[in-house]
Simulated assay, not measured.
Amino acid sequence: MSSHITPFRVEIPQAALDDLQTRLDLARFTDEVSDAYGVSVSRVRRLAEYWRNGYDWRAWEARLNAYPQFTTDIDGQRIHFLHVRAAREDALPLILTHGWPGSIVEFLDVIEPLSEDFHLVIPSLPGFGFSGPTTEGGWGTVRTAQAWAELMERLGYDRYGAVGNDAGSMVSPEIGRIAPSNVVGVHVTQIFSFPSGDPAEFVDMTEEEQAAMGVLQRFWEEMGAFNTLHSQQPQTLAHALADSPVGLLGWNAQLFDHDLDDDFVLTNVALYWLTGTAGSSIRMYYENAKAAPLPAEPTTTPIGLASAKGDFESIRRFAERDHKNIAQWHTYDTGGHYAAHIAPGVYADDVRAFFSGLLQG
Rank of each mutant, 00 (worst) to 15 (best):
S3W: 06
F8H: 12
D18I: 14
D18S: 15
D31V: 07
R43S: 00
R45P: 10
R46D: 14
A48D: 12
Y55Q: 10
W57I: 06
R58C: 12
R63K: 13
L64D: 07
Q69T: 11
T72E: 00
Q77N: 10
L82I: 11
R85D: 05
A87F: 08
D90N: 11
T97A: 09
G99K: 14
W100N: 13
V105T: 12
D109N: 14
D109S: 14
P113F: 08
L114K: 01
F118M: 05
L125S: 02
P126M: 03
T135E: 15
G138R: 07
T144R: 10
A145V: 10
A149T: 13
A167T: 13
V171L: 08
E174P: 02
V183A: 11
V183R: 06
V186F: 01
Q190F: 00
F194Y: 14
G197M: 11
G197P: 14
E201Y: 07
F202Y: 15
V203L: 15
E207M: 13
Q210C: 13
L216W: 10
E221C: 06
E222I: 08
G224T: 05
Q233A: 11
T236L: 04
H239C: 10
A242G: 08
P245I: 08
Q254S: 08
H258E: 13
T267F: 04
V269R: 02
T277M: 01
G279T: 00
I282F: 00
N288H: 09
K290M: 11
A292K: 14
G304W: 00
S314Q: 06
R317P: 04
R321E: 09
Y332R: 14
I342S: 11
G345A: 11
D349R: 15
V351Y: 03
L358C: 12
